[in-house]
């Protein structure tokens, strides 16, 4: 509420309904004038957003329909880029298969392992232990992502790597591989890195949901003889579907966008054995200067991410409790 409204208690205007007819004396222009300092507060924010977010976003949408090589005049192609993408570009189609494998595993691992850890922590009786484990699980999330990627690069290393050393230690020398260097294994190596696939942030999100379940529900379930695994499936999971939904959306988005890991680990190689769409976009744009074609891939990714997010939100219904 503003000072003007306080001085005039007759009009019971609240924040939500300032547009009620009693306020007829103030026209839209007057109200805009009254709040002029508020618009001033928003100027820096929107100046930056328009420059660095809105303009590039619209430019990206627009240029996806052009042949646009650096230094040359953009040439309108209509749907030409997309035609080329889906009909002629075998590598792009291959990258779609790769990214669906990566994304599927991301979703599967994100709804299982972190949830198990969250349940284990949640059911501990000591709060001290609960807190200690929460801090310990979040700790690896603080290590810079690039360090973790480079470490996994080392783990997979053909001659010095930890994985091959482990295989030798357990007598499976035959299985030794240059994991990232072989076309047969590179994609799988990138997909399954991160063992044991427990993201600290994900665990905390599940824990937050579990802690939000009211004690009455848990107590009454115990009275009814529902405990252990049964309680997890009958009570915990249905009650924290909201968290599951969030995690799934984040995993899908992360999987579709997560080409940085591939870039650092294999750069899509050997050859194109582990290429993903984001990386293919990067190569087109920054190695071969085909900005229009790359923008078309970006637009496709945008639509795909948006579509998957809407599907997830729509079909994974949350109950209101």
């Amino acid at each position: 509420m503003t000072t003007e409204e306080i001085r005039a208690p007759a009009s019971h205007a609240t924040m939500a309904d300032v547009r009620v007819p009693q306020e007829r004396q103030s026209t839209l222009g007057q109200r805009i004038y009254r709040y002029r300092f508020v618009y001033l507060m928003l100027v820096p924010t929107f100046a930056l957003l328009l420059t660095f977010n809105y303009y590039p976003a619209f430019m990206g949408l627009y240029r996806a329909f052009f042949k646009w090589d650096i230094g040359l005049q953009p040439e309108f192609l209509g749907l030409g880029n997309f035609e080329k993408l889906f009909i002629k570009d075998d590598i792009f189609l291959k990258s779609l298969r790769h990214v669906s494998l990566l994304t599927s595993w991301r979703v599967i691992s994100a709804v299982t392992f972190p949830f198990i850890v969250a349940e284990l922590i949640f059911n501990l009786r000591s709060n001290v232990h609960k807190y200690t484990y929460r801090v310990l699980t979040i700790l690896p999330a603080v290590v810079p992502g690039i360090v973790i990627l480079l470490l996994w690069h080392f783990i997979y290393d053909g001659t010095h790597g930890l994985l091959n050393a482990f295989l030798e230690g357990v007598g499976l020398e035959d299985w030794q591989q240059p994991w990232l260097g072989s076309p047969k294994t590179a994609l799988y190596a990138v997909t399954f890195m991160g063992f044991p696939w427990v993201g600290g942030v994900t665990v905390l999100i599940y824990l937050a949901g579990l802690q939000g379940i009211s004690d009455e529900i848990i107590d009454s379930s115990l009275v009814d003889g529902c405990s252990g695994l049964r309680r997890i499936f009958a009570i915990d999971i249905p009650l924290i579907l909201g968290q599951f939904k969030l995690i799934i959306v984040l995993a899908v988005i992360g999987g579709l966008q997560g080409w940085v890991a591939v870039f650092v680990m294999t750069a899509g190689g050997p050859g194109t054995a582990s290429v993903v769409p984001g990386l293919w976009m990067y190569n087109n744009a920054f190695l071969w200067n085909k900005m229009g074609y790359a923008s078309a891939i970006a637009l496709f990714l945008f639509v795909l991410i948006m579509g998957m997010t809407i599907l997830n939100v729509k079909f994974l219904k949350t109950g209101d409790y």
Partner: peptide, 10 residues
């Protein structure tokens, strides 16, 4: 809703 991929090039 706008992913970084879309804005990267422009």
């Amino acid at each position: 809703m706008v992913p970084g991929e879309l804005t990267l090039i422009p």
